[in-house]
Design a protein around this nucleic acid. Structure first.
Lengths: 221, 221
DNA sequence: TATGACTATTCAACGAATTGAGTAGCAGCG
DNA sequence: CGCTGCTACTCAATTCGTTGAATAGTCATA
């Protein structure tokens, strides 16, 4: 139930069309949420029905007519309500982490390549975020802007995005180096996986009073 | 289509029941994916049908009978295939970031409280991750373990989780401090929001050759 | 001796997200 | 002149994820 609020938050800085919104949410710049165009159009329609946003039609000379949306007072009230309610914890969902989790059972070559690719993507995002931050604070220094700037919300979320991508890059580079070193093969990848057993991955530590192994009989299937 | 692979990856270190799997995926320890028990039971059933995992029934004295699952050869092959295929970029979805994005339009008090609460949660996870890492590497130093340890996949993903939570904590503390300083009110929160206009949040920079403002006429609704 | 918490799983219903396709005019390129 | 790509949006199908509830025995706590 939070896409709607993400949309409201994104519209706070001025009118946007569904299309512009989609750009903002799609490409890397979605540093606080992610969504596809179809979802956004659908959400805008719902928000408009409920009176939380309002749109005005803008006819253009050379391009298709578009509709620019802005947050209404009711929308602001709803955002206020949302902001005061409890947040659910954020969680990561990342293909690449799943693959690294399985790293010891899987061909290291392609994995290393993907981790390094991801490092490069992170680097690109870091550059982008830095540019955006510079633009937002205008001539001011960061501390100054954060103390006195008019609108710091987007700046703060962008800072989080920056730190996230820096963490990503650092971890990817280190991980790639480690996997490369462990992988006895050619410098550009290409290895057979070394199976390797043991050492529990997940903790499954005694939260309960240690179930003193109540297993008794085994029947299959 | 990656929950299945997350399950396979989690089962690599030994048999788990749906329930145990749910624990691992639910509480903080899901440092590479997140899912609810119902999803996991459903996914296990599908995986079993497709022969990617196999379960054996374990009758227990005092507790309900459970089924322990392990990855089959076909499952390993599928993981291998997955690991070699392209990854989709990871994205963040976080309520709290949405709220901070709207920080300038919203009551600062509850927000600050939530950000600080999140910092504390991050701290707790940091402790947990550090304990897990220590346990995984046994007596060895980190570098040593990463060079020579048998199973580094889970260690590496846990390192990412640790760095993520450290980033979370640092950002939350800084953000809380900034919002507190900007908020003219009592030291424990309670402020009226300062509306404030301008400054574009999203970049919407000229990716296309600068649409030289083709707006012409406005009609409403 | 209730009470609630844990183990272990299943079912149903709903809402959210992804996939894929389609429309249609304009701009720039070779 | 045809091609690709951009703006701007819509529709349908399907899968994925969340919410809520139920069952049923065991164990520790008050």
């Amino acid at each position: 139930m939070a896409l709607r609020h993400a949309v409201l938050a994104a519209l706070l800085d001025g009118e946007l069309s569904g299309y512009q919104l989609a750009k903002a949410f799609d490409v890397g710049v979605a540093n606080f949420w992610h969504a596809l165009p179809q979802q956004l159009y659908a959400e805008l329609a719902k928000l408009e029905q409920e009176g939380l946003v309002a749109g005005r039609r803008v006819v253009q000379e050379t391009r298709p007519t578009k509709r620019l949306f802005h947050v209404t007072d009711a929308g602001l009230t709803e955002l206020e309500r949302f902001a005061a309610a409890a947040s659910k914890p954020s969680f990561i969902r990342d293909d690449l982490l799943v693959k690294v989790q399985a790293a010891d059972h899987v061909d290291a070559g392609p994995l290393i390549r993907q981790v390094e690719e991801r490092a490069a993507m992170a680097e690109a995002k870091i550059d982008l975020f830095r540019r955006i931050l510079r633009k937002m604070r205008g001539g001011l220094g960061e501390e100054e802007f954060l103390r006195a700037g008019r609108r710091v919300g987007p700046y703060l979320t962008c800072l989080r995005g920056l730190a996230f991508e820096e963490g990503n890059r650092d971890w990817c580079l280190r991980t790639a180096a480690i996997l490369r070193e462990r992988s006895p093969a050619a410098p550009d990848g290409r290895t057979a996986a070394v199976p390797g057993e043991g050492i529990a991955a997940m903790p499954r530590e005694g939260t309960a009073p240690a179930p003193r192994n109540p297993e008794v009989a085994h029947a299959e299937r």
